[in-house]
Amino acid sequence: MGQWIKLQTPQGEISAWKTEPAQPARGALVVVQEIFGVNAHIRGVAEGFAADGFIALAPAYFDPIEPGVELGYDEAGIERGRGLIQRLGLDAAVDITRAAADALAAQARVGTVGYCWGGTVALLAALRLGLPSVSYYGARNVPFLDEAPKAPVMFHFGEHDKSIPPEMVQQHRDKLPQMDVFTYPADHGFNCDARASHHPESARLARQRTLEFFRKHLA
């Protein structure tokens, strides 16, 4: 079972949920939240990676502007979360990711995995920080696809995701042909079992591929 710790970052001290495997770690992961904060779902995602052998650290990215945010998946939560990511900005998110990775580096090789907004932060971690990363349905990825990657990145998208139409997915394949881009018969947020769009079969397959990616690149 994980616990809250304090993490020093360029944006100030923030909270982060950390959980560790019972066995020797296969690697360490910075788990990058959706727009809803480090809520019960994201803590559960971190626990799942620990069960599969990875140290997992989920920073509370919104703490520099509003500590302790945990939002639901209703319209009010979506609206509030969108406002928070605008206030935080992606540069600050990358700073926090770097600090989290540095905090884990003494224990194991580090990668990142991110969901929704966090999927774009995970992409930036591969492009700019050199961290092997898995990006789930990052709708904000496209402006960054011309940057030269410093580490491998894997992408997961839902084929019914209106926020990421097929032409956007294709840009990932065209501009980063060396990276794996997978699509699933699912909508946005298909990995999240707290959302109506949860698609268990797609989530299982994407997770299997994600674990294989990290076992390869963090070995």
Score class of each variant (00 low, 15 high):
Asp146Ile: 01
Gly77Lys: 05
Ile5Ser: 01
Val38Ile: 15
Met154Leu: 14
Pro166Trp: 01
Phe54Glu: 03
Gly89Trp: 15
Pro143Ile: 01
Ala60Asp: 00
Asp187Ser: 13
Ile65Leu: 06
Pro143Leu: 04
Glu201Asp: 07
Ala139Pro: 15
Ala28Thr: 04
Ala92Ser: 15
Val113Ala: 08
Gly114Asn: 11
Gln33Gly: 11
Gly111Ser: 00
His199Ser: 08
Ala108Ser: 09
Asn191Gly: 11
Leu104Asn: 02
Gly189Gln: 01
Asp91Phe: 12
Ser163Thr: 11
Ile164Gln: 02
Pro21Tyr: 14
Ala50Tyr: 14
Phe49Gln: 03
Asp161Glu: 01
Ser197Glu: 13
Leu123Cys: 02
Phe157Tyr: 12
Val31Ser: 03
Ala93Pro: 12
Ala108Lys: 13
Cys116Gly: 06
Glu70Cys: 11
Thr210Arg: 01
Glu70Ala: 14
Lys6Phe: 04
Leu84Arg: 02
Leu84Lys: 05
Met1Gly: 14
Asp95Tyr: 11
Glu201Met: 08
Ser202Ile: 06
Val181Tyr: 13
Arg82Cys: 08
Ala60Cys: 09
Gly44Thr: 09
Gly12Lys: 06
Pro165Trp: 04
Gln86Arg: 14
Arg82Met: 15
Glu70Phe: 01
Phe62Gln: 06
Asp95Lys: 12
Ala219Met: 08
Gln107Arg: 13
His198Gln: 02
Ala139Ser: 15
Gly189Val: 04
Ser135His: 13
Glu167His: 12
Ala126Gly: 04
Glu20Met: 15
Phe213His: 03
Gly83Pro: 07
Pro67Glu: 09
Asp102Val: 11
Ser133Gly: 11
Pro149Asp: 02
Ala206Phe: 12
Val30Tyr: 03
Ile96Leu: 09
Thr97Tyr: 10
Val69Cys: 10
Glu147Trp: 13
Leu57Ala: 07
Lys216His: 13
Met1Tyr: 06
Arg98Ser: 00
Glu212His: 02
Ala105Ile: 03
Arg207Ala: 02
Ser133Leu: 05
Ala122Asn: 11
Leu127Thr: 04
